[in-house]
Each structure stands twice: as C-alpha cells, then as structure tokens.
Design a protein around this nucleic acid. Structure first.
Lengths: 191, 191
DNA sequence: CTCTCCATGTAAATGGTTACATGATTCA
DNA sequence: TGAATCATGTAACCATTTACATGGAGAG
C-alpha cells in the first residue's frame, strides 16, 4: 500500500515520467524502496485516477511520446497524512543472508566469491549515494545544510542508504574471510 | 521462491513445528527474513509434499497436537545447491524511510516521535541478537569461535542483524534531532 | 546488422497479507 | 471474566514478478 506514497514522495522533486521514475528510483527514493517499471506504470495510472497526480502527454519527435506527472493538492494532502502515520518496523528479506545462515551445509568457497561481488556492488552504490549527498550539500557542512536547507528528506534518507551499503560491504568482507580461513583450516586437518 | 530455503535453513537447528518457527523466526533466521505464520504453514505443507522435509504428528494432552518437521536428505541437497547459487542485491522496503524522504511535506514533529519509538525498538532487537551471539560464543573470543565452531552461519547473520539495528537506531536519533532543530529554528523565525 | 536506449503497456503467475475459524489451557 | 498462549488451517484479497509486445533512433 505504500508504493503510492513512495511515488508521491519522488514527485516532490518535480514532474517526472514513468520511465524516468523507473530509472532514478534507486538513486533517489530507493536505497529504501524498490519497484519494477511495470509496478510504477500501473500505480501511476491508479494515482491519476484517484486524482493524487495529474499527467500531461508530451509529444516527442525522435522518441516515443511520454506522460509527465505532477503531484496535485490532493496528493500533497495524502502525503502529509502519510508522513504522520504509524509505520511498522521493516522486514528485511535478503537471500544472501539466508545463504550465509545455511553456509555450513553448502559450498562455502563459492559463497565467499558471491560475497566479494556483493561487497563491490555495495561500495559502488555507497559511492553513488555519497556523490549525491555532496552535490546536495554543496559548500556547506552537513550540519549547516541540514539546519538551513529548504528540503532535507532526500539527504537524510541518503545518509541511511550510504551507511547501510558500507556496513553491507564490511560484513560481506568479514564473512568471506571467515569462510576462507575455515576452508584452509579444514584442508590442513585433512593433510 | 526463497521462503522455502529460509525454512530449510531454520530446520538445520533441528526439528521444529510451524508454530515454533513462527515464534522464533525473527530471532534465528529473521533479522533478514520475515514470514507470517500462514505463510509458514502453507510452505511447510508444500515442502513436505516435495519431500524436502518430513513431518510427524506429536499428540499432546493439554495442548493441541502439533506436527514436527525435519529436513530430509533431499532437503539438505536442495539447500546445498541454494547456498552456491547466485542471488541479487536486496531491496529494502521501509515505510519509515519513505516518510522521512517526504518529511518536508508533512508533520515533522509527529514523525520525530515515531523515529524515537523505532530507535527504541531497534536497540531492543540489537540487544536480543547480541545476547544470542554471546550465548553461542560462550567463553571463546569471536575470532576463535568463528574459526573453531562446527556451525557459524547463525552467528554470522546475527552479526549483520545487530549492526543493522544499531545503525538504524543511530540514524533515527540523528534524523529526529535534525527535525526538532529545524522546528525550533522555524519557530524563532516566526517570532 | 545487432544491440541498447527510449517509453509504455497487458496478461499470467506467483507471492504475501488479512480476516476468519476453532478450542482447550493458563494467568491475572 | 477476560486475555494470552498453544496450534493449525482456509479463503479472499492485494502486491509483486515475469513474460510478452511494440517500434523508431542512435551507437558500434
């Protein structure tokens, strides 16, 4: 029920098309909310029907036409209500963690390889987010920015995303090294 | 498709009933995988049909009868394959983060309150996990435990869960204090 | 000439949540 | 007397993923 709010929140940055949202969702909103393009297109149609956003057709010449959406006053009011509403703790669902939980019953060496890949992806994502934060901040210090800026939501969620990815990478490295150490110890025992 | 693997992984700790899994999922498997009881009961039935687990009826006198499940060899082999398989990066879906993203368009004071509650919950969960880790480790240091223990999966995932919750709490506090600071500054400006 | 990007959508299938249902036992 | 715990399940409903479909433009 809350993809709609994620979309409304994303539209605070201004008019956007479904395609644009799909491309940028993981940079802006989605260190913490993910959606497939199909989900977005479907939900945009529903939001328009509900009057929370308005779309306008933009005719393009060398590209397919697109529909640009803007949040309406009704949408702003719905978002306002949402911000103050209660929300339950998140539930993480991460296949990799299930794999690590079961690592003693599987091929730990291969898993260690996947962990290294994940660590690299996590660092790449963290760097992307951190660049975005630096751009938002500009010359100001973080504290000044957060005190003075007109809008701070995207910066605050970016902070969470960046530490999350850093912690992810650190954990992946740690687990991979433990698994490799244990593989070596096991090999010595066999000798 | 991977709730089945989470269940198989949970059954590495030994025989369990659906009810038991539902109660303990968030302590063992589920800093990183969540499922409702209904999901578990349904999936257990499917796993049994598929021959990956076996159930036996336990007749009780002062309580309803229950079915205890054990992982089979076919189940172990499926889990083995799963551990080495590729998995995509997680996608977080957290309503609270969407709320913070949109905080500039809503009631920041109320949101700050919710953030404090969340921080408290996160710390409670971290402490729970950390107790579990200490219990697993016993007298040994972490490094020795991870090198020597027969099974390390649960400890390794517990590490991730505990830092995740700590980081969560820290972030909630940070955001709440930023929002309060801004509320005060806004009030002064009005004076 | 193939691949990727732009841009949108439909349809089918799977996965997940919520509500409802049962019924004895134990604790306050 | 009322609520919580034990223990399992069905059914209806939503949310999400995956596959399929289209078609021109520009890069290699």
């Amino acid at each position: 029920m809350s993809l709609r709010h994620a979309i409304l929140a994303a539209l605070l940055d201004g008019e956007a098309s479904g395609y644009h949202l799909a491309k940028n969702f993981d940079v802006s909103v989605a260190s913490y909310w993910f959606a497939t393009p199909q989900q977005l297109y479907a939900e945009l149609t529903r939001l328009e029907t509900a009057g929370l956003i308005t779309g306008r057709e933009v005719v393009q010449q060398r590209r397919p036409n697109k529909r640009m959406f803007t949040i309406t006053e009704a949408g702003m009011s719905a978002l306002h209500d949402f911000v103050a509403s209660a929300s339950r703790p998140t539930f993480i669902r991460d296949e990799l963690l299930v794999q690590v939980y079961a690592c003693d019953a599987g091929d730990a060496a291969k898993l260690a390889g996947h962990l290294q890949e994940r660590a690299a992806q996590a660092i790449a994502k963290a760097e992307l987010i951190e660049k975005l934060l630096a751009k938002l901040r500009g010359e100001r210090s973080e504290d000044r920015y957060l005190a003075e800026a007109v809008r701070v939501g995207p910066y605050l969620t970016g902070l969470r995303g960046s530490t999350f990815e850093r912690e992810n990478a650190a954990w992946c490295h740690r687990v991979a090294s433990v698994l490799r150490l244990r593989a070596n110890l096991a090999a010595e025992t066999v000798d």
